[in-house]
Design a protein around this nucleic acid. Structure first.
Lengths: 221, 221
DNA sequence: GTCTATAAGAAGATAGAC
DNA sequence: GTCTATCTTCTTATAGAC
């Protein structure tokens, strides 16, 4: 990686850990293995480094079109898959999304930086909202719409159904960002959430009946 | 309000807008109507102001015991109320929680500061998690547990049911924090979410049937 | 408790040699 | 492109008068 790119990479790491104001140009330079003044041959000033990161962020987001590519298939293939989705496939969808957001190195650093600097720079708040709220809800809403049309799930309101699927994933993500040790607990909750989501929205009457039996069995407190 | 308290108040406002590092002692002093050096008669240094805010934050949280007092009733009274909860009462519970978190002046500023500074100071991440994830889930879990025992709602897993109720509220809150103009949209989604939540978890068989009719009526795309 | 003046130091950025 | 040396500005904090 050339120096110009390495500067961005190290700056992103530092910004995501300490926030823009707490990172000094000399810190970035040291990580790259040069002295601070050399850095000014690559970028006009500190703000220019930040802006370049933002640009790269936007470029990557456009490349992956939000959450579209997360499961490795394109939208059309997804549409076919989800016409006959099973609980296991729904679990896979949720887990993939969650683990990609949580573990992908760039995504994680970007998100932390967005979180820290969002009230300081409105552009970041916008990117955050798009990346972690609007785009996932919109893409998943499309998938769930197909599932409802295909008759594998049922609901009055696909938008709310999508919110019911995604909001817990989002919330568990923010928990793990703040305390990575809670990841195992979050993964358990994630699975339980998706299974229960599937029970609640499954069109299959057998599933509904299966569910009632369980409820009767367990609700004896 | 005495000067010492006014310093905390203005400092909190500024910290929540710009972050600790971007707020200068002179800025705080100016808002209070004094010069920076005078401020050092009240607090040892800038960090001491921050720590005092954190202390006050913890004090307030203990006072209100998390979300316990949000609806103006104590836990025991709540327990009685929610044994026979209606959809409207559930709507009230969700709206009160949401609007209190969003509009209460102290709560809003505290939350913004926590969000900005959470990766800089682990104590803040902990307070954030407790205030916006663990305490609400724990308190509402207790209420929903009572409702399930009383037979007004049904589920295999109260913890996940609580997550299904609260995670959308939390997510809509983070949306409005970043873009207050989306509050009307969020309130509409909040209501639709709670109504659908109630349909999904209602024990009443009439409700379930009512729901099926609606589904059949609307799902004609 | 508040002020003015100022010390002390940190951090961003530039100049100019190599 | 990288370095050392240095400038400049900003910010915290203190000294000491009132």
């Amino acid at each position: 990686m050339d120096t110009k790119q390495r500067i961005l990479d190290e700056a992103l790491t530092l910004f995501s850990e300490k926030g823009y104001a707490n990172v000094y140009v000399a810190d970035i330079a040291e990580r790259v293995g040069i002295k601070a003044p050399s850095l000014y041959k690559h970028y006009k000033n500190k703000q220019a480094i930040f802006d370049a990161i933002l640009e790269e962020m936007n470029r990557r987001f456009l490349e992956t079109a939000g959450a579209l590519q997360i499961n490795g298939a394109d939208a059309v293939a997804d549409a076919d898959i989800y016409k006959t989705i099973s609980e296991d496939q729904l679990l896979g969808l949720g887990r993939n999304l969650f683990l990609y957001f949580l573990h992908d190195d760039y995504t994680r650093r970007f998100r932390k930086m967005l979180t820290i600097e969002q009230f300081h720079d409105k552009r970041l708040a916008d990117v955050y909202m798009k990346q972690y709220a609007d785009d996932p809800l919109s893409y998943q809403g499309m998938l769930f719409g197909l599932m409802v049309s295909a008759g594998v799930l049922k609901t009055d309101n696909v938008q709310i159904m999508t919110l019911h699927f995604y909001a817990p994933i989002y919330m568990l993500l923010t928990i793990c960002d703040r305390d990575p040790e809670r990841e195992p607990e979050a993964l358990n909750l994630l699975d339980a959430h998706i299974r229960q989501f599937n029970s609640l929205y499954a069109r299959d009457e057998d599933q509904v009946n299966e569910n009632k039996k369980k409820t009767n069995r367990r609700n004896k407190s």
